[in-house]
Every structure is written in C-alpha cells, then in structure tokens.
C-alpha cells in the first residue's frame, strides 16, 4: 500500500506534474494560501521550500500543513542547514503525524548566500544521511537506536543536478542517494535537454522516478542574477540571449514560452517521469504554463 497519494501516482505510470510554493517572510500567509488554492488541484503535489537560498521564511512544515488543510498533496522540503539530527527527526515525526508523508531531502544552501550570514550552519547531516535517517526511523528506531512508539512511513525524494559543469561527482552522489533509499528525484533547473537526455541514459538503470526541474525565468537580468547568486543554477547563455531578445513587457511571456517548450518536448519524447515547475515568486502563472503545455485538468 502506498504511503501517500503522491507515491501512488509515482508508480502509476502517469506523467507527473509538481510545483512549489515559497512561504512568506512574515506571519501573513494569505498569499501562500491563495497560491496553494490556485495550484492544489492542478498538480500532483506541491513542494513547500525550506528557507530557500538560506533566506529566513515561514517554515516548510507550516506550509505543508496548510496544503494539507486546503486539500492538496504536500511535499515537505527538509534541509540539513538549520536542524541537527534531533530536530530533524522530531520534525519528521510531526509531519507524519499530520499526514505529510512526502519528503524531499536536501543538504541546503550555504548560509553565506542568505540573509543571515552570521548564523551557525548546522549541517549535522547531509542529504544522503538524511535519507538514511528517514529509512532508519521507518524501521522502528530513531538513529540513536532507541525504539519509536509509532513508526512513520514516508515517500522520500532528493535532488540531482544533471547540468552541473562537472557531472561525475554529482552522479556518484546520485548513486549514493539512490542507495540510501530515494524514490524520486527533482532535478535542478533544466535548460538544455541534451544534458537531461544524457542523464536519463544513466539514471534509467535505477528504479527511481525523475522529475525534470523547470525554472520559469522572468527576464534575462533574473537569469544572470540567479547564475551568480543562486546555488545550483546554471542558465546557459543561449537562454539568456533568447530572453533578452524579447520586448520589455513580453519577457515573462518569453520565459513562460521557454518553459512550456521544454515541458512539451520532455513529455512528447517521454524523456523522464514528470516535471517539477519552479516559478520562483510567480506561482500565479503556473496554471497558464500547464494550460499551454496541455497538462491542465483536475489531477486528484
């Protein structure tokens, strides 16, 4: 029996669509609620980011609870940056107890890129170890070897970076994540399908589901900024040039076009098992993208 709705879909053979919602900086959650309501029925699951780019925000767990409340399927993003092994396990217990059963295990960005640069970076574990922690908990004990009263069960995923400029060490890490129990992967932003094809040739030997990460760029300036400041993002010059070629008020439109093009090709060529759309602050446009990519329709 599947541990979650999303896990069920994962093995259904359907082309999956996930997206993500960034929580607010502050206690006003109305916009997040709006975004969740907008998207919950149009995608298979919604990620809630965990202090993305090390910028302090409303917590991922809180966001996931909201998704759950509004009737959506949440994926809890968990990074190792801010919590030691006690806090990580505790949060996972809470998540499970509230029906949040999908977890994306991430190492987390360096605090140096965020808005609290003087913070103590925790990194008590890394993403591979986090996957192991979850699998250990599922076996009935905490990682200290103490029996748990009530055993959680999760559908767990991780990230992978097919467009990394030095791919071999990334693939080693991918292997280790698979070995540690990752069931699905959301890739970092994909811009060049050649690298995705190469990666899928490699990844297809494993029994894991790959969701291609699609970043919706709003302008060439945003692309350049992300290249320089957001870890794990490499926007190729060709994409930047394409964005820059558009008229000023049509740049977001251009970004949407690019994203839609990528999604369509991925789906047509059946390159991987689904897409993960990252609109980075433009969550409102995700339905349009789905529409244009002919992925619209109630998914529950």
């Amino acid at each position: 029996m599947a541990n979650s709705l999303f896990e069920e879909k994962l093995y259904s053979g359907e082309f999956l669509v996930t997206t993500e919602v960034g929580p607010p900086k502050g206690a006003d959650i109305s916009e997040m609620v709006h975004h969740i309501d907008l998207l919950k029925d149009k995608v298979d699951a919604i990620n809630i980011t965990d202090h993305q780019s090390s910028v302090m925000r409303f917590p991922s767990l809180g966001g996931c609870l909201l998704v759950k409340e509004r009737g959506g399927e949440p994926i809890l993003q968990v990074t190792c940056r801010d919590r030691n092994r006690l806090a990580l396990q505790a949060d996972l217990l809470l998540a499970y107890s509230r029906g949040i059963n999908n977890v994306l295990c991430l190492t987390g960005d360096s605090v140096d890129v965020g808005d609290h640069k003087e913070a103590k970076p925790v990194f008590d574990s890394d993403s591979v170890q986090l996957l192991k922690i979850i699998r250990t908990m599922e076996s009935g004990t905490d990682i200290g070897g103490n029996e748990l009263k009530g055993t959680p069960k999760f559908c767990i995923g991780a990230s992978v970076h097919p467009e990394a400029d030095f791919i071999e060490p990334q693939l080693i890490k991918f292997d280790k994540k698979v070995a540690a129990g990752a069931q699905f992967f959301q890739t970092q932003g994909i811009f060049d399908l050649r690298s995705l094809r190469r990666f899928m040739q490699y990844a297809s030997q494993f029994d894991v589901k790959i969701l291609a990460g699609i970043i919706v760029l709003a302008s060439a300036g945003m692309a350049r900024y992300m290249n320089n400041n957001v870890p794990g993002i490499i926007v190729p010059q060709a994409t930047i040039d394409e964005l820059a070629s558009a008229e000023k008020d049509k740049r977001l439109q251009k970004g949407i076009e690019i994203a839609v093009g990528l999604i369509k090709t991925i789906k047509e060529e059946n390159l991987c098992h689904g897409v993960h759309i990252m609109a980075v602050g433009n969550e409102r446009i995700v339905p349009d993208i789905l529409e244009a990519a002919q992925l619209a329709g109630v998914r529950h």
């Binding site: 360096s110 591979v128 990334q170 870890p231 794990g232």
Partner: peptide, 21 residues
Amino acid sequence: CTKGILNGPCAGTKNGKCEAN
C-alpha cells in the same frame, strides 16, 4: 567544504568553486 558534508558535493559547486565563496 563550507557545509562540512561527507558524502560528496552539493549542487552549489560551479567552476570547481564553492557556492559560499
């Protein structure tokens, strides 16, 4: 490694350099 992690690089590495610096 700015994160002191043990199982390989994070995705932030670019041009052989660290995402933090």
